[in-house]
Write a protein that binds this DNA or RNA. Sequence first.
DNA 1: TCAGTATATGCAAGTAACTTGCATTTGTCA
DNA 2: TGACAAATGCAAGTTACTTGCATATACTGA
Lengths: 139, 139
Amino acid sequence: MKQHDCKEELRDNDLRITPARLGVLEVLEHTDTPVDVSTVIQYLHSHNIPADETTVFRILRVYTEAGIARPVQLDEGKQRFEYAAKPRHHHFVCEKCGGITDVTECNVESLEKTIERTQGVKIARHLLEFFGLCRRCRS
Amino acid sequence: MKQHDCKEELRDNDLRITPARLGVLEVLEHTDTPVDVSTVIQYLHSHNIPADETTVFRILRVYTEAGIARPVQLDEGKQRFEYAAKPRHHHFVCEKCGGITDVTECNVESLEKTIERTQGVKIARHLLEFFGLCRRCRS
DNA sequence: TCAGTATATGCAAGTAACTTGCATTTGTCA
DNA sequence: TGACAAATGCAAGTTACTTGCATATACTGA
């Protein structure tokens, strides 16, 4: 069922169906926080899909180009990726436990308009991420 | 004059005064865009201050800890730094020419309040950077 | 259904941005 | 001015990738 959806998604994007690609698509669909490469590899290995680090990097690049995955930059010195079918959103990162939660609210659009007007630039995208202590770590 | 200010700033922070440290402080003060390590090294060398890459990394870390410099993360896979005496602000990066300009406006505080309320988290800081085409590259 | 071919993968090696260890040099302060 | 702590330089290590190339594998169409 899930398997079927994944295959279809790959076919729709003219991408060959391989175990590694199906596995990576599954992680992206099943994980609700942006994943890094080592998490993906762990998932694949625990599902007996023998995928090399290089392959995972390549798959994630292909997915990004195809619009299946979306890179997420959380100020960590490494890329994370999330499933691009999820609507665009921002994140909150707990600086103590490392937990990541989605932030769907965003009021930056009006600010973008202002900046475009005052600076004469054309804004294509913005990066907005929040850092602090999560509910549990606050106490 | 400038030199004197720099020395004083180092002394105020209980940091030893060395040519490399003075040089790095000068770049930070004189450059109006966040600088990366290679830019700093170029500046030092062009001013006949022979500083090693390692030293520059170390100085920038010391400055960050002392609150003299502030790290800036612009989604490039490397750190930049700016003079921390400048009030906190955001940036606009031109994706064509790479030019960086300051963005002083920010309306994210109210959003932070909302997120803190709805998610029960405590937000300490946020990352907000804009990407697009600068005035010149638009045309 | 199977052979041919284009493409995906794995492995080794390379790169960029740092970090660490350690011996040497250099500020600082008595 | 000299002693000592701290800063520097160099070499080597680390992490997050990327690239080249030979091999394996998925798709195509006969």
